[in-house]
């Protein structure tokens, strides 16, 4: 188990350093970070790239993704 936890720590540390480099140098990730920090995650290019991927999963404060209707009131006819 000691070995497993050490591997996990190594993976985590390497990933964080590599991730910082990607976020620093790749415009899409940089803009994603700025959008989230600015309180507009829906403007993140990464979020927009996933527009059609599970459109039912939306951001908490945002309306449902394009193409999906707003939830109907319960028990109303579908």
């Amino acid at each position: 188990m000691e070995q497993g936890s050490r591997s996990l720590m190594i993976i985590l540390c390497v990933a964080l350093v590599l991730g910082a480099l990607v976020v620093g140098f790749h415009p899409a990730y940089r803009n994603a970070l700025l959008s989230i920090a600015g309180g507009h995650p829906e403007e993140s290019p990464i979020w927009q790239a996933n527009r059609d991927y599970y459109p039912d999963v939306s951001l908490p404060a945002a309306p449902a993704a394009a193409g999906a209707e707003a939830p109907a009131a319960p028990a109303e006819s579908l």
């Binding site: 985590l12 964080l16 991730g19 976020v23 994603a32």
Partner: peptide, 10 residues
């Protein structure tokens, strides 16, 4: 979400 962004960037 910020840590997740860094992890998934890698």
């Amino acid at each position: 979400i910020y840590i997740a962004l860094f992890l998934n960037a890698a």
